[in-house]
């Protein structure tokens, strides 16, 4: 090289310039990438000033609640062109809801899960369901051995029984305790609810739930206008935004008015029972008093309000030979694949 070596000062500043500009470009594109989801933002989804300053459900006074309901009504009308009936039914005095499910009758038809989706305005795309029907090999109550993706020409399958699982509305709900912003709480009638406008989507509750009962909206829930159920309540089935958690509320918009939950009405075999456990004549009280009742994962100690029970029964022609249950060497193991 004939030219004199550049002095240190010059070399450094050139290198410095190069790295500096690379960092600037990189930083700018990272920033742009980070903001890119905003491009998909629908101006419709932008919160209005009022909804931005909306209080926590439990801190609103009557007037503010009315306004919040009106905003939901408007939003539903704007987005789905549906006249919605948005209510805010309150827990009744002397009512504590309990669910009971007859394991001897359930045939695993999944009608409950689908009726629930329709009733509660769940996202259809991506699919979101509150109820999971577990197909259990005989010989175990271990949900780890269950399968909820079973595909069969006919149910019930004689080698299995069925265990539908949904929110158990626990008396000591871990999901409520872990919520950092108190967006979820237990109502006086035992139903654990979520203020979807207060949820920050951290999913702690989802992780805390031993029954896998909470669902997160990973992307914008899609619901066609013709699928909207206009009978809505603030704390239950009003349309949810992306990024919040939702769950079964025992259909509180129906049950607080005295009606039955949608999953119960859809059950063809009458396996689902619902009622007020504080009323000694209610169906669930009779079941708790007289049937062999159990709760799922009793050992986690969350005191579910969702009970399972058995009837004595021996189905004609339906009994399959018992293969010893899962975890034991037997042909049942390979079969259940």
């Amino acid at each position: 090289m004939s030219s004199p070596p550049p002095d240190d000062q010059q070399a450094l500043s050139r290198r410095g310039f190069l790295t500096g500009s690379a960092a600037a470009v990189g930083g700018a594109s990272a920033f742009a990438a980070a903001l890119s989801p905003l491009r998909e933002l629908d101006p419709q989804d932008l919160p209005s000033i009022e909804s931005f300053f909306q209080k926590h459900y439990r801190e609103m006074d009557a007037q503010e609640r009315e306004q919040a309901l009106a905003r939901i009504r408007e939003k539903v009308a704007r987005r789905y062109e549906v006249e919605a009936e948005v209510s805010d039914p309150q827990a009744r005095d002397g009512v504590e809801f309990v669910y009971a499910l007859n394991v001897s009758r359930c045939i695993g038809c999944r009608k409950c899960a689908h009726a629930c989706v329709v009733e509660n305005n769940q996202s259809r795309e991506p699919e979101l369901q509150y109820i999971r029907v577990l197909e259990m090999p005989r010989g175990t109550l271990d949900v780890e051995k269950s399968d909820h993706h079973y595909e069969r020409d006919e149910v019930p399958d004689p080698g299995h029984f069925y265990l539908p699982v949904q929110c158990h509305q626990c008396e000591d709900p871990p999901c409520v305790r872990v919520c950092p912003v108190e967006a979820t709480w237990q109502e006086p009638d035992g139903i654990t609810v979520i203020d979807y406008d207060w949820c920050i989507g951290c999913r702690y509750c989802e992780a805390a739930c031993p029954y896998w009962a909470r669902r997160f909206n990973y992307s914008k829930p899609e619901l066609a206008s013709e699928d909207v159920n206009p009978d809505m309540a603030y704390l239950s089935n009003r349309p949810r935004p992306v990024g919040v958690v939702e769950k079964c509320t025992f259909c509180l918009h129906r049950t607080r008015e005295g009606r039955m939950p949608a999953c119960l009405e859809a059950c063809p075999v009458g396996a689902r029972k619902f009622g007020n456990v504080l009323d000694p004549e209610s169906e669930v009280s009779w079941i708790l008093r007289t049937k062999r009742v159990f709760v799922l994962k009793e050992d986690v100690g969350t005191l579910p309000r969702f009970f399972y029970y058995f009837d004595e029964r021996y189905p004609r022609g339906g009994a399959a030979p018992f293969d010893g249950g899962p975890g034991r060497e037997g042909k049942g193991e390979e079969e259940s694949e």
Binding site: I107, G108, C109, R110, K111, A113, H114, P126, E127, L128, Q129, R132, D147, H148, H149, Y150, E151, R152, D153, E154, V155, P156, Y218, P268, V269, P315, R316, G317
Partner: peptide, 18 residues
């Protein structure tokens, strides 16, 4: 006796693969 019936489709969600 109750007839066996065809079950409705199972869950499709991506977070619940078989």
């Amino acid at each position: 006796a109750f007839e066996a019936i065809v079950p409705l489709p199972g869950p499709a969600s991506r977070h619940a693969q078989p």
